[in-house]
């Protein structure tokens, strides 16, 4: 390499790293982040406006199911409490439904299985880009909330989970539009079999018009709240608090 071309190359590398550093500075500026965050708000407002609140996510035929439904995120909660429940095949597992409800409930897995069910073959879309189709069976969340007599002041439903990442518990939240959507269920069965631990045994959320990180696994407690402030990081979910993901998770 001649001197001139080496110098040119060095200048090129220097200029491009300056440019990159400059770009990242813009990306990290709080004002810029607030501004570009408006895109997500516009998406949510527009989608809620144009779509019927009960518009159903597409349901598929049994032949459309993914041959292998891959797992993602935490696949084995490590807490002693969960391990004990798992050893007992979740016979002692109880789902709490509480918060802003008149009639708080504690439900066993057997009770969940004998409640009215909805079965749906739907597509799971990870925020990363992949999709898998599977048949889910579970109890409509709206039914549970009605039975628990949801307060008229409640605005969100929070799902507290058994899994943690580096000690930080997983949780998620949805608003009442999604909570009362007919396809929003607490599922205990995937493709005709009890949920595997990797898929969130014994119970996970399916909220079919949302991306994967909203589909909380290992759900232990359903809490109705008026505001997400004060719940963990206050942004409504594990990924929202810790990694800057958006609560609405829109596309």
């Amino acid at each position: 390499m001649s001197l001139i071309s080496r110098r040119a190359a060095l200048v090129g590398v220097g200029a491009s790293s300056l440019l990159l550093a400059g770009c990242d500075k813009i990306v990290q500026s709080p004002t810029v982040r607030r501004t570009i965050g408006l895109g997500e708000k516009a998406t949510m407002t527009t989608q809620r406006l144009i779509a019927d609140r009960n518009a159903l996510a597409p349901e598929f035929a049994a032949s459309d199911r993914s041959p292998v439904f891959r797992t993602n995120g935490n696949v084995m909660p490590t807490s002693a409490e969960y391990q004990a429940l798992m050893t007992g095949q979740f016979a002692d597992w109880k789902l709490k439904v509480d918060g802003m409800v008149t009639n708080p409930m504690t439900l066993s897995l057997a009770q969940m299985r004998s409640a009215p069910q909805r079965r749906q073959t739907t597509r799971h879309d990870c925020v990363e880009g992949w999709s898998a189709i599977g048949e889910w069976t579970g109890v409509p969340l709206g039914l549970l909330l009605k039975t628990a007599q949801l307060s008229s002041n409640a605005r969100y439903v929070v799902f507290h989970c058994a899994d943690t990442t580096s000690g930080v518990p997983y949780y998620e939240s949805i608003d009442l539009v999604d909570a009362f959507h007919p396809q929003t269920i607490l599922a205990h069965t995937l493709n005709g079999e009890a949920l595997s631990v990797g898929h969130g045994a014994p119970l996970r959320l399916r909220v079919e018009r949302a991306l994967g990180y909203k589909q909380a696994k290992y759900v232990m407690r359903v809490e109705a709240v008026a505001s997400l402030d004060g719940i963990h990081g206050g942004k409504g979910g594990y990924w929202e608090d810790g990694a800057g993901y958006q609560w609405y998770a829109g596309i």
Partner: peptide, 10 residues
């Protein structure tokens, strides 16, 4: 838009 699960429902 097709990649949006919400838009697929709408």
């Amino acid at each position: 838009l097709t990649m949006s699960p919400y838009m697929d429902a709408a």
